[in-house]
Design a protein around this nucleic acid. Sequence first.
DNA 1: ACCCATTCCTA
DNA 2: GTAGGAATGGGTA
Length: 915
Amino acid sequence: MTNQANLTTATPLILVDGSSYLFRAYHVPYLQALSTSYGQPTGAITGVLNMIKSLQKDYPTGNVVVVFDAKGKTFRNDLYPEYKANRPPMPDDLRTQIEPLHNIIKAMGLPLLVIEGVEADDVIGTYAHQASQLGIETIISTGDKDMAQLVTPHVRLINTMTNVELDEAGVLEKFGVKPDQIIDYLALMGDKVDNIPGVNKCGPKTAVKWLTEHKTLNQVIANAGSVKGKIGEHLRDALDQLPLSYELATIKLNVELPIQVQDLAASPQDTERLIELGKQFELKRLVADAEKNAGTSQPSTNEAQSVKAEASKANYECILTEKEFDNWLTKLQSAELFAFDTETTSLNYMDAEIVGVSFSVAENEAAYLPFGHDYLDAPEQLDRNEVLNKLKPILENAKIKKIGQHLKYDKNVLANYDINLQGVAFDTMLESYVLNSIATKHNMDSLANTYLGVDTIPFEDVAGKGAKQLTFNQITLEEATPYAAEDADITLKLHNVIWKKLQSEPNLAKVFEEIEMPLSGVLAKMEQFGVLIDSQQLGQQSQDLAARIMTLEKEAHELAEQEFNLSSPKQLQEILYTKMDLPVLKKTPKGAPSTAEEVLQELALNYPLPKILMEYRGLSKLKNTYTDKLPKMINMRTGRVHTSYHQAIAATGRLSSTEPNLQNIPIRTEEGRRVRQAFIARDGYKVVAADYSQIELRIMAHLSGDSGLLEAFSAGKDIHTATASEVFDTPLDQVSVEQRRNAKAINFGLIYGMSAFGLSRQLNIPRHDAQKYMDLYFERYPAVLTYMEDTRVLAKEKGYVSTVFDRRLYLPEINASNGMRRKAAERAAINAPMQGTAADIIKKAMLAVDDWIESIENDGIRMIMQVHDELVFEIKEQKLEEYQKIITSLMEQAVSLDIPLIVEIGSGDNWDEAH
DNA sequence: ACCCATTCCTA
DNA sequence: GTAGGAATGGGTA
């Protein structure tokens, strides 16, 4: 239940009655004076924007949603044709401000609702009602008294122009009746402006008097006979009208809305568009604010703009004596949760030596414990082994929870000292990643700036930069202590802020707790264990390649009649397009004539040089990137290669791999596969590779619910052949190789959010034909089309898309004015739910497989690599059959979707054979 | 020493 | 057409 409480107070829903403020701002004299140099009035725009800004300031954690009336008639006109018939038409100089205002609000990233057929009040009422049911606190910002009927213990009104807030007691005080009597009150009085009939001569005083006496409108009606005097006659005259008036005054609580209340969330501001609009309407303050908030508002993190470097407040200690250390040990032992960081000599976890550790148990209270600083005249420090021995039981105690920034690194480093870090509960890097995967960076300095408004001490300030950069052991304790202690302190503070935000978003905390956080430990194990590589074989291949490359180089120089660097695109352009005058088939993004593979392929049909270049490129790539480099990456100590999996890089939720990148090892060519053959297993072990078959297309079937696709997968058909059969209207067994190839291109294109143009280029066919294929596809699989369209619309409304497990990807450019960027964002919107769900699935599978491996205590098995849809293991020969079955089952059952997941598994002496 | 453009490897 | 990492050359500081 505490979660609920957090949720309600952390992010109140702020519903802004845009139309009500628009009219009021329009009539404010000093705002009326505002207009652009070319005569476009902007007073109402300014008024509403100021009002929104002041709301954001007053409720920094609030989730602001703006609602406007739509044009045209509403259901109230159907009930009563005279409704609002007295209203003069909207003045032109107000009307022209509406669209710009909408655009600005959208560019600010705020959800904007304009629903036809109902009024803004009804939309607001519905959301307030939904929010109450979810226990979300709601604040309605309006100048309209009618809204008082919506006030409950969870819903209050704020009049931002007068800064008066109304809760239940406030409504009673102001109107003399309770919120649930407001409709009756309004019905009795009627409304001149809206042309709602009421009781003639009945104003607020009379209405309150009657309602105080009889409680409800129905009781007033029932007792109408006993009301004396002229006013009694008026009441009796109005009896027939009153039910209608009541209905007209009632704000709907059940409007059908395109976005559910829990999905109402701000998207990142579109800075470019905001500035453009600001300039167009000459709104200086808007431009200034847009620039100020650029990059910091995804999602809005505006509460912490001003706190700059409060380090003086903090109490940072340097631990040099046994006594100080014991003191801290006691604190840590009794702490439920503390922030923790290691300082080391290298960014590479295999080489890193620990120089010191820092802790923080409470904000502004942190310590640095150095033990490896060895610069000249360094003060005497505690003994490393002794310190680590004493810390070990605390660090290995899963009950004592730890917070850290990128703790996978610390876990790996500690493993080199035989400390198995446990109780890793919160990694701020991963918290930030799950909250917003596209935030510029998830490093601590950026996070501190974004979420705390604090500028931390940059590493370069203490260590210098470039070749002369010092390692941490060379840094004086005077400099190291504030830097290192701050790391722990800031990490704790960051967690306090980001975790709250994560919990307030539906299911994001779940993605963090159930996927990313536990996965971090699994990845650490894979990294530490590493993969075995046959450097002998790669060395041999390097030699073979070198010889062949030399020959090709010579041939190329002869053909070009001059020496040149075959690896230089620039020199190559000169040779091909200036000297030899070959046709330019394609240009690079910068406008230079391209020499890319596809161009060379085309040119090779008519000229000899391009073919040589293609082979040269392919081979030198293999040599430079793989056969030369991989052996150099073998760790001396373990004899294996240890990659780093990056868990907070890919916007879609995928992992990435560096140093070396094990996720782009060649497979497509024979020569390339020789590199794969160098990935081997220990004696007595085999390499086992298990990959999900067509996982993204399966996810597309699940997400779209298309019956044709679902059937094809359930029937276990080859999906590309099945697609070809449908699209080209050919019996399944008569589909040609060509047809299947085309269908495959269509299927992949769909996953990438393709256009007909893209498909035509891929298949090298006219755009018209590509369009025809796509039309045919969507005719056969109509739900796929609907899904794609819906996804685009949803992305534009919300500013983000989600995976099946609710991981989010924000798309700041989904409403960009630049068509290219907007289109790119739309493609990403289509792709991300599929790629991201696939990432979620394999991550869950990794957790399941790791659980099982742990349960058998690594008996003859290790998980060694992940390549997006594939897991690679090293398995003892005797266990091969048994374990392959278990892995297949764990992966296939990792999640439950509307289509079966199929895993293909194989084994061999090397990675190539395992496929 | 660092950044950018180009190219090419993977799912 | 999606998502990544890395190597190269070539320019800049």
